[in-house]
Design a protein around this nucleic acid. Structure first.
Lengths: 342, 342
DNA sequence: TTGAAAGCGCTAACAA
DNA sequence: TTGTTAGCGCTTTCAA
């Protein structure tokens, strides 16, 4: 029933079925030329032996591992959990699995990338951190496509998919202005992250058009997470007694929620009467009763689909086109943290 | 600078460094016998060529892939996100990466397992779903350790780590009784999941000791998720107009939160005055201002550590000990959804 | 310490 | 459609 080391190989199956070893290989390769009768014979033998093809061995010759590396940053943000889930499902459906890597938030991916390369993955998806152009070209030299999820590296030839973050920032500014807000605070994420920068920039641009300069926007560092935003909010408004502005824009929903809870829980502030709130991402939590957060929805599924298109796993040999930058628009979701006009 | 197909192999490095190919292998294998001078020479050549060892090729001979499969179920439950995060970090620290698989919630893992086996992973962690004993033995025959996270399979020889779920259920019943509750509802998860069953059973047992039979407990199906609990709650108490009990026990926090929001948001119920709430898991969200949920904390880190201990990745050859069942106790975390005694 | 040589389990020409 | 054969890139004896 089993070999030394508990290993059943195609050779064992071949012996039992009385065929050549390559026949066994063919029996397990869809679309290869083998007679149905022989295939059945082989599959029966394989079942008997509990044989499972060794895809590690096959990838040595095919040069395909059916694995894609996903470099994860902030799983504390439910948006990225959703992204990961969507990626797993979409990839698993086509027979490729995800190898996960993490990078300290805001750190460089270069180290992680070196480890990734050892595994000979068919593609790399970066949802976190920076990446040197040297690394990008190392991957491309090896024919491994890299796609950046919701980030980009200026001057790099890595492709990427992202939400129109600046556009989303503008939309939120527009909504807040419409509701009458004139003074603003923003909860920023990783200062090196382009996502946070872009959202803030679009936001500030729109305000500038109304004559409100960026210097009048209070910028708070929330480190992209609930707790960070909670703490920054308390420090600014309770400890340092800064005046609470008309509106606060959370660069992501989870930070907006942190700030909302800080203000309501520790300072008795009511929303939106005392202060309006805007978020970004439209995570599930934003729609829940305690928050009902007006936010910009990022079309996660669509972004995932575009990511996989860029990865182009079905065309292994294909030349990797450099620097494609796909931008999908966000959408304003009206809820209760910004009053609608009468 | 590079080969056909963009592949740099140890042979290229050997050629450039003027050594044998096996020397290159040794230079990259910690603890193998090679002179420091030669190693430096080789590493320099490798750097020049952007060489990265192919771990797929090496695993063919070493029979180690440095990959562990994690079979994921419900990432909608933040507790399992935390578990995944902890696993990634702990494993990555020792140089092994995680290959993720998903199974439809409540489904069988057997199909997933077959796919897992192709990848020759060094170990398998199941955080979801059922597993046939046939599969367990297939893994064990191959020398692949399997550990079940927070579930067990009666009669199986798969090992597992879990929270003392029944004990936790008892603790919660105790707390609720102490606060004066006499009528109860429970939000259940996957009916086939032992986790949900055990928590409910422990809960019911303690109530029975007070003379409250299980038949008097209203059991609601929340499918382990926020939305499921939200909907089930609304249906039972708003649509079917069942009387609201003194206390509701969410088999996990996220369901408790869904029910709390349903009751407060749609029926004007106040907590804990109108109804007390208990949860399980102690996810971060449970501590936030809108919820402040009294719950049973599962020591995720500790459970992850025990999981890795059972996996015993450092002893590849070791005989797999069957059926070790590690139970770590949960702890009651008092917050605001159950009134403390005066 | 070093190099030569034989595999690990599979796929992919090539011939038959 | 089949079997034979030569690798894929590495590790690991075995001699030197």
């Amino acid at each position: 029933m089993k070999n030394i080391g508990g290993r059943v190989t195609s050779l064992d199956v071949a012996a039992l079925a009385g065929v050549s070893q390559s026949a066994v290989s063919r029996a397990f390769t869809p679309g290869s030329s083998i007679s149905p009768a022989k295939r059945e014979l082989i599959l029966a033998a394989a079942r008997k032996l509990n044989y499972v093809p060794n895809s590690i061995a096959s990838s040595l010759t095919t040069r395909r591992t059916n694995m894609v590396a996903v470099i994860l940053g902030n799983l504390d943000n439910p948006f990225y959990v959703l992204v990961l889930k969507s990626l797993i499902e979409a990839l698993q459906a086509r027979g490729t699995q995800i190898l996960t890597f993490t990078v300290p938030n805001g750190g460089s991916s270069d180290n992680a990338l070196m480890r990734v390369l050892r595994y000979q993955v068919d593609g790399i998806i970066l949802t976190s951190a920076q990446l040197s152009t040297r690394m990008t070209s190392m991957c491309h030299d090896r024919g491994i496509p890299v796609v950046l999820f919701n980030r980009y590296i200026p001057g790099s030839d890595a492709s990427g998919v992202r939400c129109d973050n600046a556009g989303g920032g503008r939309l939120m500014a527009e909504a807040l202005l419409l509701a009458g807000a004139r003074s603003f605070a923003v909860l920023k994420g990783d200062p090196k992250g382009t996502t946070s920068q872009d959202r803030l920039q679009g936001f500030a641009e729109r305000l500038l058009e109304e004559g409100i300069p960026r210097s009048r926007i209070l910028e708070l560092e929330g480190q992209s997470v609930y707790d960070g935003a909670h703490a920054a909010t308390l420090q600014a408004f309770r400890d340092e007694k800064k005046p609470i502005p008309d509106a606060i824009f959370g660069i992501n929903d989870t930070m907006a929620m942190g700030a909302m809870d800080a203000l309501r829980g520790h300072m008795g502030v009511t929303i939106p009467q005392d202060v309006m709130f805007g978020g970004f991402d439209n995570i599930d939590e934003a729609d829940r009763w305690p928050y009902r957060l007006t936010t910009i929805s990022q079309p996660a599924r669509e972004m995932v689909d575009e990511t996989l298109k860029l990865l182009d796993l079905d065309n292994p040999g294909a030349e990797i086109e450099p620097g494609i930058d796909i931008k999908v628009p966000g959408k304003l979701i009206w809820r209760d943290t910004i009053p609608r006009q009468a």
